[in-house]
Structure formats: C-alpha cells, structure tokens
Simulated scan of single mutants.
Amino acid sequence: MASEGLTDTSHPIIVFDGVCVLCTANARFVLKYDRRGHFRLAAMQGPVGAGLMRAAGIDPTNPETLIVVDGDRILRDSDAAIAIWRELGWPWKIAAAANCIPRPIRDSVYGFIARNRYRIFGRLDQCWVPTAEQSQRIV
C-alpha cells in the first residue's frame, strides 16, 4: 500500500462510511478513547478512503464493511472491529473476547448490521466533519 502513495502507513487506518450514523459514531468513539493516538481514520467517501477500499477490492460506493489497513494487512468485517477494540485499551479491550466466537457467526451478525445500517441507524445528508483537534487524525 505504501508504494501506491495513498497515505502514511505508520499508523493503522480505519476506513469507515462517513454518512452512516453508526459508523460515524464509531469513528468519534475511536477518536475519544484511542488515547495513544494509535489509529488514523478515513471516510470511504474521500479520496484516501476510497483508494484504500478499492485497493482492498471493495467498491467504496456500495460497501458493507469497514476496513482497518495496517501496513500491507487489511482487516475487514468482525476482524476489523475486534482489532479496533483490542487497541483501545481497558475497558474496551474486553470486547476483543468476541474473537472466541467462530468467524462465520461473527461475520454473519456483522454483515446483517452492515447491510441494514442505514435503515436501523440512519444516514447523514453529508459526511461527518471532525473538529479541528480531531482533524489531525483524519487522512
């Protein structure tokens, strides 16, 4: 990925749906509780996020997942969510215990929520805009 010039790969990047209410709430949650500043975030509607989604083989205009790009490694679906929780520290780290659930079950639940996220949680009219302080971690 780094060779593609898409972005700095020194921090894992969470690529999320910037118009999904649930997804943007999760992005704000990460910005608040990732006290070490481990993650960077990119909306899939922006050039960096869309490029990373395409590099992962996902259509950024019709996604049903978020991804975490960590160097050359791309995590998606429940694996991506668990990787995020694992890095947030206590008490959020305990949610990574979901890794004990077999992936087909985790991904089925994740997929159901992802496919229905707009209907269940809503859709924003435009991409979420971070505060000036938060914007340092947005790529």
Rank of each mutant, 00 (worst) to 15 (best):
M1T: 15
A2N: 15
S3K: 09
E4F: 14
G5N: 04
G5M: 02
T7Q: 13
T7P: 05
T7N: 13
T7Y: 14
T9A: 13
T9S: 15
T9V: 15
T9L: 15
H11F: 03
H11N: 14
P12F: 01
I13K: 08
I14H: 04
V15T: 04
F16R: 04
F16I: 03
F16N: 07
V19M: 05
V19T: 13
V19L: 09
C20V: 02
C23K: 07
T24R: 05
T24E: 03
T24F: 02
T24A: 02
A25W: 10
N26R: 02
L31A: 11
Y33F: 06
D34S: 00
R35S: 09
R35Q: 04
R36K: 14
R36Y: 04
R36G: 11
R36I: 05
G37K: 01
H38G: 03
F39N: 03
R40I: 00
L41P: 11
A42F: 02
A43G: 12
Q45T: 03
Q45R: 08
G46P: 08
G46E: 15
P47I: 04
G49P: 04
A50I: 00
L52R: 02
L52S: 10
A55V: 08
G57F: 08
G57W: 00
I58S: 08
D59F: 11
P60Q: 14
T61L: 13
N62G: 12
D70K: 00
G71C: 01
D72P: 11
D72W: 00
I74S: 13
I74Y: 10
D77V: 01
S78W: 02
D79P: 01
D79T: 05
D79W: 05
A81K: 05
A81H: 03
A81L: 11
I82F: 07
I82Y: 10
A83M: 00
A83R: 11
I84D: 15
I84F: 07
R86Q: 09
L88S: 06
W90D: 13
W92K: 04
W92A: 07
W92N: 12
I94D: 04
I94M: 09
A95D: 12
A96T: 02
A97N: 06
A97W: 09
A97D: 10
C100L: 15
C100S: 10
I101W: 03
I101D: 11
P102A: 01
P102N: 01
R103F: 07
P104E: 05
I105Y: 03
R106P: 01
S108V: 11
V109Y: 12
Y110N: 06
Y110S: 08
G111F: 06
F112N: 04
F112I: 10
I113A: 09
I113K: 05
R115F: 03
R115A: 14
N116S: 13
N116P: 10
N116V: 07
R119H: 13
R119T: 12
R119V: 11
F121N: 09
F121D: 13
R123V: 00
R123H: 01
R123G: 02
R123Y: 03
R123F: 04
L124W: 00
L124F: 09
D125F: 03
D125Q: 15
D125A: 13
C127N: 09
C127I: 06
C127W: 08
W128C: 01
V129N: 08
P130K: 10
T131R: 02
A132F: 08
E133C: 03
Q134G: 10
Q134N: 08
Q136D: 10
Q136N: 09
Q136Y: 01
R137E: 06
